[in-house]
Design a protein around this nucleic acid. Structure first.
Lengths: 335, 335
DNA sequence: TTTGGTTGTCGAAGCGCTTCGACAGCCTAT
DNA sequence: ATAGGCTGTCGAAGCGCTTCGACAACCAAA
């Protein structure tokens, strides 16, 4: 294990000089810098992370809390996590992976131990237990998601209200009057996950404005659950011609069932999904969809955090504008 | 920020005593221990991670390298990652998330800086550039996956060879004579990912033994790619009655296409998938499948690592035995 | 009573780094 | 020539913890 002192000796300078070469916090003559850099390379020196953290009280680590459950949005979570990790690296940070399992304790542990300089939280509930801790914490944090009370917090999320509105608007514009919403699993609503409720909000308010009748049904993923839900939908509203699907794992089952019932997409029934683009283009019908900008969210979260760590940037709620891409699953309502 | 010294003062003991209470490395009288623990609680003390790492040269962090690409097995990767994180926590370790992006440099950075005490690598290629570094590293490591040369390494993986054999065996036992294998995307084979080749190996050798004719076709995920592939299969082997699918994102498209062509599953055609159980039961036909024990793999990897860190346990290759669950997608060959 | 072994506690050294103040050397303006 | 301001470098003090050796205090055996 090569140390700073050894590099200094090898280069014939003092330890502090080597440190300043590394950090760039004081000016160093070109010749000295080169000599030091040469020694670093020759000896294969890597600064010790612990020592650095201790001396500078900066760990250069960002903690990322991911939800423990894998009952929803797995690809989205993964994409966000990877975007966070790669973006963090470009700013010289590493990422610590925490699962939601520990809950508030994890926040205490991280803020108390100086393990991480900052935190990113995913899957935030409307009234999350962790929020008070974050407000008091010395370390900055960013939420991916939107809780009920955002004072003193910074959040990044898709504007799900606008997303809901956009979906209805699209279908209304095509002449659909009866629209069914296939929502997330009931459990998601029960734990008051913000995005699900906000989407519903957007759907409903725009439906009112455009004179669309809305039927909202939560739905577990999978074929069987979707079959039951779909039967109920057509039972209650036989004239349904439009679908908005928020549950990723209900999309393909829905398409299969519609096909099976002889309802053509998009001739008889239009489907709009809220899902990552990748899912939309891989489906058996290329789906008209509002994409979930997972990478963008991860990237933005890290950049906000880095700004805060550098003393720039203040608390702020960033809602990304939804974009609807028309593909092959939606068309004019049959009339 | 409360320090050890402050706790010591508050409890009326020396710093080292507090340290020994925390670590349990020396015996402490019950009364002293209680007094110290009381002070820790009252002051809300959390040991500083950096200081600890520096003094003990142990960071209590395990690095996890996940593949950057999300072109395959996303749910599996996610499940492994979460299993690693939760298992690590039960042993007092945190997990650092690294993406494959940096490649060998990431290994150097981690081993050089003492950032982590150990590493877990996913998505290992047959002849991975990172392997030589791992063999030399002071820190122990575990691979999830199986490279060509495993000397000096410890690996955990599903026995994909046996998995392939098991799939063929099941279909052969049902009387199928012409079996098509829908493989991973061509890129996966090109980069010599071990599991894909080993599966193929197992499929082929058992096919030879059971007198089954095999047709292997790599396939990008998605509906369109599957349609092209399927057309080719029936073109070349019209008598095909069995399918083994390794590419998760080809499963649902395959089922949809078969249905569309009027081929009933499992009456006309049997399908066996290699995928997580969750995917198998959520499909439009409940799939006969060999499950990928993602959680188990993550757990085993961590436990091996912890054993090594404790001075127990040696290098070893652990191949988990595959298990085939018969569901509704396979049945006797029509004859 | 002395000796020897435990048990529980303490003090001090040091892990490898950052950072502050000091200062030598030089250049420019007086 | 002198004062003042830069630049580039160094020494030393710590960051908060672990850990080693030392050593009182006690008990049991001789």
């Amino acid at each position: 294990m090569v140390t700073l002192a050894e590099v200094a000796q090898h280069a014939g300078v003092s330890a502090s000089t080597v440190s300043y070469v590394l950090s760039g916090k004081r000016s160093i003559s070109a010749t000295t810098r080169q000599r030091v850099e040469q020694s670093i390379r020759e000896l294969g020196y890597h600064p010790n992370a612990g020592a650095r953290a201790l001396a500078s009280s900066r760990s250069n680590i960002i903690a990322l809390m991911v939800p423990l459950r894998t009952d929803m949005y797995v690809p989205v979570m993964m994409e966000i996590a990877i975007a966070v990790a790669t973006t963090a690296r470009t700013h010289g940070y590493d990422v610590l992976l925490l699962t939601g399992e520990e809950g508030p304790d994890a926040v205490r542990r991280v803020t108390g131990s100086g393990l991480a300089d900052a935190m990113i939280l995913m899957d935030v509930e409307l009234d999350d237990e962790r929020l008070p801790l974050l407000r008091e914490a010395a370390q900055p944090s960013v939420l991916i998601g939107l809780p009920a009370d955002t004072t003193g917090l910074t959040c990044v999320d898709l504007d799900f209200r606008a997303t809901g509105a956009l979906c209805v608007e699209h279908l209304a514009g095509l002449g659909h009057r009866d629209v069914a919403v296939i929502g997330e699993a009931p459990a998601v609503y029960e734990r008051h996950t913000g995005f699900a409720e906000r989407t519903l909000d957007g759907l409903r308010s725009r439906a009112r404005e455009t004179d669309v009748r809305l039927l909202h049904r939560p739905c577990e993923g999978g074929y069987d659950a979707m079959a039951v839900t779909l039967a109920r939908v057509f039972d209650e509203r036989p004239g349904t011609t439009g679908f908005v699907v928020q549950n990723e794992s209900a999309v393909e089952p829905l398409l299969a069932l519609l096909r099976q019932q002889g309802r053509a997409v998009p001739e008889d029934v239009s489907v709009v999904a809220i899902c990552p683009d990748q899912v939309a283009v891989q489906a058996s019908v290329r789906l008209t969809s509002v994409s979930i900008p997972a990478q963008e969210m991860g990237r933005r979260a890290v950049e906000h955090l880095v700004a805060k760590l550098d003393g720039r940037g203040a608390d702020e709620v960033v809602l990304l504008a939804p974009e609807l891409t028309v593909r092959a699953s939606s068309g004019p309502a049959a009339s």
